[in-house]
């Protein structure tokens, strides 16, 4: 086990004690065993689920919410980490530099693998920023104490107690902002490299118009065939257009739903059975945060790659 027998015994006793306390103080235990009168400090309140981010204050027209503050903290942490490494960057890396380099290199390789050598380096900064922002948001919100710092606001004579920090991923404004960035990014590179083809995938009326031309010249069969396929083309283009805009929504809600769900899950578990039961879910949320970050960044990468390589598909047909 890697430790001596007495130490093992002590560890087992501590775990058992924590288990008993968590069983007795949680809602689950109380329902089964009944309230045994443990001090309040051991019990965790039932989570108060609120979808919109809580408002903390106002700066001019902008409402400062706890998620906005959390995203700023994430920015500060990321930039501080980057600066700590790169203000004295060395050819032979230190440990911290290796860590950051590992992450950057992995993402760079991901970009060049998916998008190719030519585009990979261009896409890399945005993709990496998305990935780092999302993963850091979700991991920072798992830091103990993150959600338990509260802030009291007096409003309409009532006092509202709300967490000062809340993971930015759990705010639809943040996820929507990120998906808008990703959407604009895809459009920008799509138009820049595919030019008209980028629009042609949505509005493909070429065959429809050609069909009329054929009809006009008296080629009835070919003309009607072309018009028929032209209508299908236009319908496919319409579907493409819809799915293109749906992505905007699905990106935002996938991240929002997953992260908010994870947060509520952990709070629920803390309520049901504090200490022990929440531990595996913390691990799960670490994984989910990484996966969601990878999905957001990876899908953006895939879509932008598809958008810039439209002409290759055209040639392949």
């Amino acid at each position: 086990m890697g430790c001596s027998f007495p130490v093992l015994i002590v560890i087992i006793i501590i775990v058992l004690a924590v288990g008993v306390v968590s069983l007795l103080s949680g809602a689950l235990g109380k329902a089964i065993v009944g309230d045994v009168g443990l001090p309040d400090i051991f019990t965790v309140d039932a989570p108060h689920v609120q979808l919109p981010a809580e408002e903390i204050g106002h700066i001019g027209p902008i409402t400062i919410t706890n998620t906005l503050i959390a995203s700023w903290i994430t920015i500060v942490v990321l930039v501080a980490l980057a600066w700590a490494v790169t203000h004295r960057i060395k050819l032979i890396p230190s440990r911290l530099q290796s860590l950051l380099e590992f992450a950057i290199e992995w993402l760079l390789n991901l970009c060049t693998d998916v998008a190719g050598e030519k585009y990979g380096r261009r896409f890399f900064p945005i993709i990496t920023t998305i990935f780092l922002f999302v993963i850091m948001n979700s991991w920072l919100s798992l830091v103990p104490g993150f959600g338990s710092i509260t802030y009291t606001v007096a409003e309409h004579g009532e006092e509202h107690v709300m967490p000062l920090l809340r993971g930015a991923n759990t705010d639809i404004n943040f996820t929507l902002a990120l998906s808008i960035v990703s959407f604009i990014f895809v459009c920008y590179f799509g138009i820049r490299y595919s030019r008209l083809l980028f629009f042609k995938q949505f509005f493909n009326g070429g065959r429809f118009i050609r069909g009329h031309g054929l009809l006009f010249r008296g080629k009835v069969k070919a003309g009607f065939g072309s018009i028929g396929f032209g209508i299908i083309d236009m319908f496919v283009g319409f579907l493409e257009l819809i799915s293109f805009f749906i992505r905007l929504v699905s990106f935002a809600f996938r991240l929002f739903g997953n992260m908010l769900g994870g947060e509520i899950l952990i709070l629920m578990m803390l309520f049901l059975m504090p200490y022990l039961l929440a531990v595996p879910f913390y691990g799960l949320e670490l994984l989910v945060g990484a996966i969601q970050a990878l999905i957001f960044g990876g899908l953006t990468l895939v879509f932008v790659t598809m958008a810039v390589t439209l002409h290759e598909h055209e040639e392949a047909h």
Binding site: L51, P52, A53, P61, I62, T63, T65, L68, S71, W72, T74, I75, L78, V79, A82, W83, V85, T86, L100, I104, F124, P125, I126, T128, T129, L132, F133, A168, D171, I172, N173, F174, L176, A177, L178, I180, V181
Partner: peptide, 28 residues
């Protein structure tokens, strides 16, 4: 109900762009 509002959205886009710019010069 979801809490979508434009100033928040813009604030988050701006914070993303700030992060992008800072990371671009300090990391990438």
């Amino acid at each position: 109900g979801l809490g979508i509002n434009l100033p928040q959205l813009i604030a988050q886009i701006v914070s993303f762009l700030v992060l992008f710019g800072l990371l671009y010069f300090f990391a990438y």
